[in-house]
Every structure is written in C-alpha cells, then in structure tokens.
Write a protein that binds this DNA or RNA. Structure first.
Lengths: 111, 111
DNA sequence: TCATTATATACCCATATGGGAATATGTCAA
DNA sequence: TTGACATATTCCCATATGGGTATATAATGA
C-alpha cells in the first residue's frame, strides 16, 4: 500500500502547508475563490485544486452563488486533530519534566 | 514538486495513523522497540520504520541501552500542531454557530 | 569464537502527489 | 448569440510512500 491520499482524511489534507494557509486565511469568513487568489497571491488553478482537496475531506463547505463559489471552513472537521493532540499537552510544562526526573530518582532509590 | 516527504515535519509524519498509534501507545513512557512490537502486534520492521520517520522529525527521542533502543515521545514537537489547530476551537461551540446565523440575518435586514 | 537476541536496512511495487500551463465548464450581461 | 468573467479540470512528471520479506548490523553471554 502506498501513502494514503491527501483526500483520505483531515490529517492528510492538513499536512500540506498551503492548505493550512488557506484555512488560516479563511478563518470564519466565507470567501470566493478569487478573494483567496488575491489574498494569497497564488495562481487560480492552485487555489482551486487545494480547495478541492479540502472539500473532499469536508474541511470546507462550498456554496454556489451566481458564477462564484463561496467557501467557508467547516470547523467540525478540525476537532479530531485537536482532540488527538490535546492529551499530550499535559506533558509540556517544565514542572512535569522535573516531576518525571524526580520519579526516576525515587525509583532508583527504591532498589 | 511532489508531496512533501513524511519526514519533512511533524504534520506530515503524523498524517499516518500508525504513527499516531505509536505515539499514543508510548504516552509518557519510554519503550523499547520490542515492547512496542508486542503492544501493537505489528511486524518488527514495520515498527522500526515508523519509528525512523518519527525520529527524523524528532517526534521521538532515541536512547541506546545495551542492544536495546529506548524511545520516548518528544512532546515539544507536537506543540506546533496544537498551536495551529487551537485558534479554530473558538468557532466550535453551538452558540457560536447560532451567533453566526443571527449576524447573517442582521446583515440582510440592513439592506 | 559462536549463537542468540535486538533492531535497522534493502529491495520490491502500485499509487498519489503538487506545480505549471493550457483548456474546459459554467454563468452572467448586453 | 457573443464575449467576459469565475472557477474547475486535464495533462505532464519526478518523487516518496507503506507493506512484505529477507537480510544486515550490533551487542550480549557462553
């Protein structure tokens, strides 16, 4: 089996920095493709293609309006990423690092 | 340019579910390769190869001890992922969704 | 030295990638 | 109908992937 496609899930879709930038730039605002092209200063096909990936994993919702297509971030689909990474957060503090050392020392003393 | 290598950064490394599982299983505990092989019930080369990727992006630290190699999660490298996804969190609550609708209605009324 | 244990590496292959350029589709307005 | 605008799609290619199997490296103990 090869690497899983970028369209397989949000984790893969978001591994590409350009797609993260799109989500950042959009924020909570609905944007047309052209607005994004201007804001990001990328070629239009590039924006469309990345939006296509984001749409397939439902990280963005598309809404047609005349000849424009308006996109907005679907925050729900970012939840799993947040929920996966958050449990590790409790080990980040320096105090925890020190606690860890203390426990190691105590372990050795027990012997 | 092709897709960026899995070893390019933690975002790419963690896009693979098996590598996320390794980090979950390790938690805050130092583990030898064989312990992981037993805990995960995967072929040993598979574990080693995924650990190799995680090591290259420094998501794990390696510590040799006799013929064993002990690995532990390097929580620091997970921070950027947490920090990237967290700002979107404020838009997750239902109340915000409703607020958004209210604002849309107000906008229409202005016209 | 040799056998054993612990781990890493090499080889194979089908598959998707992202960028660029060109072109297609779709929708409006006159 | 025709042209202009907005967006999507197609074609190209070098490159890395993850799984499986086999083998290499490294460290230990007898």
């Amino acid at each position: 089996m090869a690497r899983r496609p970028t369209t397989h899930d949000p984790f893969n879709a978001v591994a590409e920095p350009k797609r993260r930038m799109i989500l950042e730039v959009m924020g909570s605002t609905e944007r047309s493709v052209n607005e994004l092209v201007v804001l990001l200063d990328w070629p239009q096909p590039m924006v469309s293609k990345h939006l296509g990936v984001l749409k397939k994993v439902e990280l963005v919702k598309e809404h047609r309006q005349g000849r424009q297509r308006l996109y907005r971030v679907n925050m729900e689909k970012l939840k799993p990423i947040h929920e996966w990474v958050t449990p590790f957060e409790k080990y980040w503090s320096e105090s925890y690092e020190r606690l860890d050392e203390v426990l190691e020392i105590l372990k050795k003393k027990e012997k």
